[in-house]
Amino acid sequence: MAANWLFGRTFLFTRHAQGVFLRRFLRMVAGMRFLTLMKIAALPLLALSGHAQENAPMTPADMNKTGMLPPHTKVLGERAVEAFAKKDWAGARKAYLEMLELDDGNALIWANLGAVEQQAGETKRAIECFEKSVQFNPRLAPSWTALGLLLQRQGDIYRAISCFTRAIHEEPEDARAHNFLAITMKEFGWTDAAEAELQKAIDLKPDYGIAHFNLALMLLERRPPAIELARRHYDKALRLGVGKDDVVERRLKE
């Protein structure tokens, strides 16, 4: 088996190696500079980002979804991660572009380049990179999620919903994708569907504090508001580390 660099470390091309890559890439997606909160009607804000979430070890079926990185890229990879750590987006971009010269159809490299472009504030380029990623590997759920977040930020709600839906199709148990889809559906006005997606996110990950917080907001928007049920989810969110919100607390006291 050939060795390859994945975010600063050398691994053999194994299921575990690809799992490590995807876990790190997904954490990068979760940490991308999106607005952490999004407006939700007359209530405060609907939280966008969630807690870091480890994926389960990969199976042979997962390998078919993710593909492989090209071999012999250790030096380029080290250069990219060093540049990324220094916020040297031009340097990181150059390293990933050189990796693409070895394999310009590699979905994982396009995904990493997309994350670099997003961090650099080059939203259009980032979207193009993630579009390339899913073009070359339509089964790569993290790229669909990242693309959906960028499109949502651009106000392209229809396409964002499509991307999150596809991410869930590929990874049905990804609670964050359900949360992101709920936010986008709420923005579109599909409140019942948004509430259902948040409940699904909580069912999949009961300790997902952001989803509990968001569901509390949705319940407060009901007419009449479901105060006690909202209070339960809000209190759960606080216990899970989500910060207090003055507006929500005032609403719960009404």
Rank of each mutant, 00 (worst) to 15 (best):
A80E: 01
A83Q: 02
F84M: 08
K87Y: 00
K87D: 07
A90H: 09
A95F: 04
A95D: 01
L97W: 02
L97H: 05
E98D: 11
E98R: 12
E101G: 09
L102Y: 03
G105Y: 06
G105L: 05
W110K: 00
W110D: 00
A111G: 11
N112G: 12
A115Q: 08
V116F: 04
E117C: 12
Q118Y: 14
Q118S: 04
Q119W: 14
E122S: 13
A126C: 09
I127A: 04
Q135R: 13
P138I: 03
R139H: 10
A141I: 00
P142K: 01
L147S: 02
G148H: 09
R153V: 13
Q154G: 10
G155P: 08
D156M: 10
D156K: 12
I161T: 02
C163P: 11
R166I: 07
E170W: 12
P172R: 01
D174T: 12
A175Q: 06
R176F: 15
A177R: 13
H178P: 04
N179H: 14
A182G: 08
A182C: 06
T184I: 10
T184W: 03
K186H: 12
E187V: 03
F188S: 05
G189R: 01
D192G: 13
D192Q: 14
D192I: 11
E195V: 11
A196W: 09
A196N: 13
Q199W: 03
K200R: 10
K200H: 08
K200V: 01
D203H: 13
